[in-house]
Nucleic acid binder design. Structure first.
Lengths: 333, 333
DNA sequence: TTTATTTACGCAATCGTTCCCGGAGGCAGT
DNA sequence: ACTGCCTCCGGGAACGATTGCGTAAATAAA
């Protein structure tokens, strides 16, 4: 049997749909006798309101659109977990989209999420997004939107980020004192970590210790796993670094593989530091000091911020930026 | 400005909504002149059909409901990735729910997913689900549903699983020949791996090598991370095993932490084997042989199976069971 | 008894779209 | 000229729910 509708109930009880609807919403206009009859019958046939009909009427879907570069990633999946936690608690559904680091898919995901009348968007920018007109557009249309982790370079929007400056600073301070031949970084994602914060986070620390800094390759080639591996191997062979700074989760994994494979070429007191939320970090065979972003908390706060924005009917004028502290996890801890 | 509707276009061009609708669907009943005018105008105002209205009319949402125990898990997030891949390709949206291993939430997730008129469900059972009436109910209501990995013990449903028998068999064969004091397993999830397969997978291997097998604790306490850690430490202190079989991703992580912490109590040629999809497995400081389930492929196939079922209008009478081969990843490979 | 007020419900529009009818006008065949 | 048949388009119901408005009956106030 198909899902019963209000019409079915009305017909069965010889009432009008308006009466049934009002009874179900416990309106004062309906006598308690009628109310009870309707409630009982609805219970009996297991009536549930059709949210699609409601969405159509109210132009609201009670769902939020979550757009991330990739789901299968320790950081993003934990953020999604946090978003889900809050959304579930506050009665929203979570619809997921992946950009696979592609600007074009970001646009398409955004369009298709909003075509479905998502009430708002939580997003972490794709690695190839350098143009932000599509977000300007959404802002003009008053679509509630919250950015997390990889955020756009302008201020009039809600943001939830980790304090990557502090993370990188503390992390490199931890690492540098023992670094001898320089610190090498693969800054593929640093522009996302925010250009002003990522490098600032590293630079002061490096000046403190007075070490040589050298950039590795930059750019998006490093999103490709094979290329990451190849790049790190090249660097190892030509530069013989004794320390590494790995600026993102995805980068970390394949860099570590490359380092492990060529470990015989590297000094025994090798230092590696990087952003990573992988839960296995404490169990690695490599001296990997990870800067762990508070992913779950970021997700929770981003969702709360978004739902607050959705539910406050008034036009957004002020914007929040929430900054959370990362934690440093020493190798083999 | 709000999204333009068919009605807006009709009004602007002095036509009826029927004509506009037909023109947009390229109906033969509309003259090419009119058609072109409508198409051009639609393009100009950036018209996109309202999928909610369509859903209401067709009683179809073009979205699939995905229910997993947890998102932030290397295995499940990769499965979701696979589901998303297929769903995106075939024009469906993915709505995610987590049970957190709770039967009650499984019921609620199922209800709320279907209340939103999801066209079908892809699900991996919660660890505390022992009763399957809710699925029987859905089957009676002809809701398309595909189970993966943790599947119910009856046959008349679609399933996508890894060949855990082969995985465990191969894995233990790999491991056992060198095991001396017996193999110890934490079978918390083995009932999910399917009672007949999980243990069968281990037993033949153990008989082959003639070793002693001993069960660790069973039950759901092991879903709790702190308790997993405590349990594994107890086992280490009392049993002094020289090998471990860890039957799930979540179990693996905390067991490994316990093993690492107490490594000094264990023999140097320790053997550990278990199901795990963590990408860092090859980089661990422990001799962990992981049985990797083809998570992405499982997700893809599950989604294809589901969408096929959704789109074949006829009542399902035969059911598919897809079995995929796991791969064994040697330690430090 | 008449009038005013409340109680308890029904009617119909609305959201955006599709699609079954029906119908006007043009053209050819008889 | 009459019938038949296309071509091209509009009217209106339907999907499921909510809600402003109207109104009958019941009750209260005069």
């Amino acid at each position: 049997m198909l899902k019963p509708t209000i019409k079915d109930i009305a017909k069965a009880l010889n009432l009008s749909t308006s009466t049934v609807s009002r009874a179900l919403r416990d309106s004062y206009e309906i006598s308690s006798g009628t109310k009870q009859k309707i409630l009982e019958y609805a219970q009996a046939v297991n009536y549930t309101p059709n949210p699609i009909a409601l969405s159509l009427r109210e132009n609201k879907s009670h769902s939020i659109c979550v757009i991330v570069p990739q789901i299968a990633n320790a950081f993003f999946s934990e953020v999604i977990n946090g978003i889900d936690e809050t959304a579930y608690r506050r009665g929203y559904h979570v619809v997921i989209f992946q950009t696979h680091e592609q600007y074009e898919r970001e646009i398409r995901d955004l369009n298709s999420g909003l075509a479905r009348r998502a009430d708002g968007v939580v997003i972490s920018l794709s690695g190839t997004t350098t143009d932000f007109d599509h977000f300007r557009q959404l802002q003009a249309e008053q679509v509630p939107i919250v950015f997390f982790d990889r955020v756009p370079p302008f201020d009039n929007c809600h943001k939830v980020v980790a304090d990557n400056f502090a993370g990188a600073y503390e992390g490199t301070r931890y690492c540098c004192p023992r670094a001898k031949n320089g610190l090498l970084t693969l800054p593929a994602l640093l522009f996302c970590l925010s250009p002003e914060n990522g490098w600032k986070g590293i630079k002061p620390a490096s000046r403190t210790s007075g070490r040589l800094w050298k950039r590795g390759l930059s750019g998006f080639a490093l999103f490709d796993t094979a290329e990451t591996l190849q790049t790190i191997e090249e660097i190892i062979h030509t530069e013989h670094p004794d320390s590494f700074f790995l600026s993102s989760e995805r980068l970390a994994l394949y860099s570590l593989k490359g380092i492990k494979k060529n470990q015989h070429l590297l000094p025994p007191d090798l230092e590696i530091i990087g952003f990573s939320n992988n839960p296995y970090n404490g169990l690695l065979d490599l001296p990997f000091i990870s800067i762990q972003q508070p992913a779950f908390e970021m997700g929770k706060q981003a969702a709360d911020l978004l739902i607050d924005a959705i539910e406050s009917r008034q036009k957004q004028t002020s914007f929040k930026k929430i900054v959370l502290k990362p934690t440093i996890l020493a190798a083999n801890a």
